[in-house]
Computed example of a mutant assay.
Amino acid sequence: MDDSLIPLRAPRFARYEHTLGRGYADAVEGSSLILGDALGVLSAMPAQSVQTVVTSPPYWSLRDYGIDGQVGLEESVYDFIDHLAQLFDQVWRVLRDDGTLWLNIGDSYTSGGRTWRAPDRKNVARAMSLRPATPDGLKPKDLIGVPWRLAFALQERGWYLRSDIIWEKPNAQPESVRDRPTRSHEFVFFFSKREKGYKYDVDAVRGPNGRRLRTVWPIKTQAFREASGHFATFPPTLVEPCVTIASEPGDLVLDPFVGSGTTPLVAGSLGRRFIGIELNPEYLTMATRRLTKAGFVDITPDDSGEAGSDAAL
């Protein structure tokens, strides 16, 4: 992040309970974190209200977050792709015609017939008591190709797939494998709603030696110390170029899978408004504390007139 950028206080911050049936038309006027199912919340948001979306949905079959309605534990990877594709249909609706989508998604391997996964000494969160079976059409130990399957599904639904970006992880976590290379990258897909005329400031971010940004981004993973219950935070330095290129100060940035709050944190630091949606109340509490600590937001009364607090979060 540019040291000359001074973190800006968001103009308004509120929390909404989707299960109470409240509307979200007023949320887009300021900055909001919303507790609820992403598809349901997006369906209630105004059309053409968001400038850019930067998000990282849960990956298929890699984590059990222990909450009903979670994405990523669908019985089939094809159900997972279809679930996300339907959700991004709503993202399309709320996105401005000159808006863009930046989608980080990781891959996974077939289970080889095992319905569980043992813990790893260096990654305790890897353990799962429930794991989907090998998808139809694939074999044990196959790399599934989830990112490209999702990218093609969105392409078929009308999105323009403008670029595949390789997030290279110089400090990638070791894997206990002896029959293939250790994976040290993920994909970020860049989509637009139309062929031309979408917001993309080519001079806003430069690569090494002042060159225009290229498609391989070497960015170290970054631990968030307070995220003891959240195992998949993505680094602010991955989000910063996306927000900077695709929006201007005052624009609205959306993350429908906000997790520990990295996208709103970056959006706030760059003077953008934000909406973050999260199904897990523990993660939303984590994001709220993180953003409040950074000075980007204040906890203000919600629709019920009751002031927000840690107890209420």
Rank of each mutant, 00 (worst) to 15 (best):
A153K: 12
L143D: 01
N123G: 01
G137Y: 02
V188Q: 05
G158D: 05
A127I: 02
A125R: 13
Y160H: 15
R149I: 01
A172P: 00
W148H: 12
R126W: 11
I165G: 02
R178E: 14
P174F: 07
R180G: 03
P147N: 08
P181I: 04
G158W: 03
M128F: 03
E175Y: 11
P170C: 14
Q155N: 08
I165D: 02
A127K: 14
D142I: 05
H185A: 01
F152C: 04
M128E: 09
M128R: 15
E156G: 01
G158S: 06
D136P: 03
G158R: 09
T182P: 00
Y160A: 11
V188S: 07
P135I: 10
E168R: 12
T134I: 10
F191K: 04
H185I: 02
A127S: 09
S184W: 06
S192F: 03
K139R: 15
I144A: 05
F187I: 12
F152A: 11
K169Q: 12
L130R: 15
E168F: 02
E156F: 00
L154V: 04
S192D: 02
P147D: 11
L143I: 06
N171C: 06
S176A: 15
F190M: 08
P147F: 05
E175Q: 15
V177G: 07
I166L: 14
R162G: 00
V188I: 15
E156H: 02
F187A: 13
F152E: 15
L138S: 08
D142K: 05
S129E: 05
P174L: 04
S192K: 06
S192N: 05
R157K: 13
V124K: 14
F187P: 00
T182A: 13
A133Y: 11
F187W: 08
A133F: 10
P174M: 04
E175A: 14
P181Q: 08
F152W: 11
V146Y: 09
V177S: 09
G158C: 03
A133Q: 14
R178K: 14
P135R: 11
V124I: 11
T134N: 13
W159A: 07
P174Y: 06
A127N: 03
L150A: 07
P181G: 06
L161V: 04
S176N: 13
P174Q: 08
A133V: 10
I165R: 02
P174D: 05
R178G: 10
P170F: 15
R180V: 01
N123F: 01
S163K: 09
F189D: 04
I166Q: 10
D164T: 11
L130P: 00
F187L: 07
Q173I: 11
R183S: 07
D136R: 09
F187C: 12
M128V: 02
Y160I: 12
A125T: 08
L130Q: 14
P181N: 05
V124M: 12
S184E: 06
N171P: 00
N171S: 09
W148R: 12
Q155P: 02
A133L: 13
E156P: 00
V188T: 09
M128G: 09
D164R: 15
V188L: 13
V124S: 13
L130W: 13
P174T: 05
F191A: 03
V177P: 03
R178F: 15
